[in-house]
Each structure stands twice: as structure tokens, then as C-alpha cells.
Design a protein around this nucleic acid. Structure first.
Lengths: 210, 210
DNA sequence: TGCAAAATTGAATATTGATTCATGTTTCAA
DNA sequence: TTGAAACATGAATCAATATTCAATTTTGCA
């Protein structure tokens, strides 16, 4: 029962082969796990199927029992990460008392998730060039949820009015870049300090105001 | 006398061959221009040298007279774009009366540049996976300049105090994502509206304050 | 003008790795 | 227990293309 519960999904996935037996399930999960490591470390183009199967401890041919192609498994990984990330962040945010607290919690969660899952993080980034539609879907799902939350908060009067769509993309970009710079590139940065500084910026802005 | 004046650079570039004649200069420039189109349209891995030379109207072998490898010309493009972008933005920003105006002008300039140079924009993004050091250098140069400007503005009291490094990366990420979403993906968005909404956010923040 | 350096060329080389497939093994519902 | 469906396998195929190189042409200085 590992993280790759995508497998259970009853929807008749486009992928040609959904495992029917216990063993099949296990093998597919091993392949996904191996692919995550391989693509995360070597990137999509340098990553090889043979190496994925070697890591998974199965024969080369087995790969094509579960995935149509190299690109197919890569897409599966991106979709998977989308769910994982959103779920994780939502969980960390759920009992924040208001939107500003939620922003902090969400940003903190994202940074920690990114640092703990550098491979998945890289895979999502790279999907922009391997499977652009997956990439867009990933961020559009993110942005839409974010937008809705901002909208609600504005209605409640917890934050100022403003274009929620643009704000959502702004805040996503901000977190992605801070995550890349301080959570992924720089292993040792104190993430709490980054959260504080960034929160200060998005809460109060640059203006010297009162 | 086109944009590729990198060529003139007197520094004895690592690249093995610096053209010595008028014709050589022209050929190298044609190759860079062709590579920009090819990589921009097909991406690094699907882009091919043969196709670059075809676009440039030269023989295949000619490529290796001017560039060590496929990766070398790609790197040259990234470096080139770094200069172009920073120069362009600096020019648009230079006579802003204060930092907040400069932020607006810089963001506007970036969006328009991105929309007008989608190929270069894509190449920079992709460099993260092809030549990560070029990618980092690109953004670090950006961030450092930005940081310095914020620092100066804070000293002058034009903006509130705060961590300028983190702010710089935040604002870059914000612009990069807005640029991707509204300038590159969506051809028809009114960029001025995006600048206004985003500026409102970074100037005044989310807080309902007075 | 003459010639050494610079530039041009594309066929041949060399490597790499995704995908196929025919055959053998394992699982599990009846 | 059993046999049809699922799984597993890796050698062979097939395609793609980056890079080299030896021969030829052009450029520009003395």
C-alpha cells in the first residue's frame, strides 16, 4: 500500500494495461517509483527505460506491459505529483483560521514538500518541455483552486479586493521560484525565514504605508 | 549588424572558433538565428543540427566550424538572452522616478519582451534541463541586480525594509509566471491590466489595511 | 596578384536507446 | 485442481542524429 494508489483508480485510464492481479499492481508501482528516481536524477532525455527496469528489478520487456511509452510513464508521474502536492498542501492548510494564515501555511508546506521531493519537483518543471499539456493542467488546477480561495477570502473581507486570477498566478510563481532557490538549490536555508519574509511581502506590500 | 553582436566580444570565448573574416561573422550569426528558431519551435532535444544548418542555408559541416557541439550553441543562446533581457528592461526602467514606478515599468517591459520573443523565452526555461549552470547564472544575475535596486530603494525610504534577496526572487518568480500565463500562453491578454493587478498586489499587499 | 589562413561541405561513422515480439512462467477464479 | 488470462523476459529491430574528416573553395593581407 504505497503512495502510488493511482493504480486503484477505477477510471478506465487511457493507458492500455491496468494490472489485474496483485503481482501486476506491485510491478507497476515499482516501475513508477523507479521512473521517479531515474527521471528525477537524469532528466527525461537522459533517463532510460532499461535503467528504469533495472532499478525496478524487472525485465526490459515488462515496461511495455504497463506503459505505452516513455512519455506515458512520465505523464503519469506528473499527474500523480499534482494530486500529491495539492493534497498535502490542502491538509496543512485546512485548519488555518483565516486566509493570511492559510497563505503562510500553504507556502511553508510547499517549501517542505519541494525539499523532500526534489525528484518530483524537477519532473514537474521538465514536463513543460516533454508534455506541455500535462504541465499546463498541473498549474491550471493549482491556480483555479487558489483563485477560488482568494475570491472567498475577499468576499469575507479577509483580504482586499483585486483580480483573484492574476493574484493566484502571482503567488504560485512567487512560491515556485522561492522553492527552487531556497528549498531545492540551497539545502540548508532556514525555510521559516523565507516564509516570514515572503509573507510580509504579500501581506503588506512594498509601500511604506501606515 | 544584427542583434548577435556577441560575436564582436573581444574576450577569447571558450568556443574554439571565433570568425576572423566578414563572411565568418555572418555565417555564425546566421547559425545563431537559425538555432533560436529551431530550439524555440522544437525544443532542445527534438531540434536538430541538420535542420539548423538548413535554416541557416549552410552545409552541415559548417556548424562545427563555429560551435563545439549542440549544447554549446544552446548555451550561447541562453547567455545572449540574459544580456538582451536585462538590457531591454534596464532601458525601459531607467527614467522611472521611484522604485514603485520602476517595478511597474520593469514588469511591463518583461511581459512585452516575453511576448515578442517566445522562442528565447522558451530556450531560457529549457536551459534548466540542458545546461543548469547557464540557467542559474541567468537568474542569479537577474536576482542580484534586482536585490541591489531594492536595497537602495529601502535605504532611501521609498519602500519598507525587508529581506531584499528574498524579495528579489519573489518578484522574479511572480513576473516569470505571469509572463508565461498571460504573455506567452495567452496571446490576447491585455498586459496592462496584468501589470496593474500585479503592481497593486506587490505595492499594497493582501491586507485590508487602511 | 599570390598565397596562407579561413571557411565550406556532405558523405560516412558511431552510438544510443526506444520499442517489438515470440516464448515461457505465474496467478487465481471456478 | 486446472487452464485461460496475466505477467515476465531480453535479444533483435529500427530509427535517429550528433560528430568527424579529408577534400575544395573563398577571403583578405602583404
Amino acid at each position: 500500500m504505497n503512495q502510488y494508489s493511482i493504480l486503484q483508480s477505477s477510471a478506465p485510464m487511457p493507458g492500455p494495461k491496468t494490472p489485474k492481479t496483485r503481482k501486476g499492481l506491485a510491478t507497476k508501482a515499482k516501475l513508477l517509483e523507479a521512473a521517479e528516481a531515474e527521471f528525477g536524477e537524469r532528466g527525461y532525455h537522459d533517463g532510460s527505460i532499461v535503467e528504469i527496469t533495472r532499478r525496478a528489478g524487472v525485465g526490459l520487456g515488462t515496461f511495455y506491459v504497463y506503459f505505452e511509452s516513455k512519455e506515458a510513464i512520465f505523464r503519469a508521474l506528473v499527474t500523480h505529483m499534482g494530486h500529491e502536492t495539492r493534497t498535502f498542501i490542502a491538509r496543512q492548510v485546512e485548519d488555518a483560521p483565516d486566509r493570511l494564515q492559510a497563505e503562510r501555511a500553504g507556502m511553508r508546506a510547499f517549501f517542505h514538500f519541494a525539499r523532500a521531493h526534489k525528484n518530483l519537483y524537477r519532473i514537474v518543471m521538465e514536463s513543460q518541455f516533454v508534455a506541455e499539456d500535462s504541465y499546463r493542467a498541473y498549474y491550471e488546477a493549482f491556480a483555479e483552486g487558489y483563485r477560488r480561495n482568494l475570491e472567498i477570502a475577499a468576499d469575507k473581507g479577509e483580504i482586499r479586493d483585486g483580480d483573484s486570477g492574476i493574484r493566484a498566478w502571482s503567488l504560485i510563481g512567487l512560491s515556485v521560484f522561492l522553492g527552487m532557490r531556497y528549498a531545492v538549490w540551497d539545502e540548508s536555508t532556514d525555510l521559516e525565514a523565507v516564509v516570514d519574509a515572503a509573507s510580509d511581502l504579500i501581506e503588506r506590500g512594498l509601500i511604506v504605508g501606515r
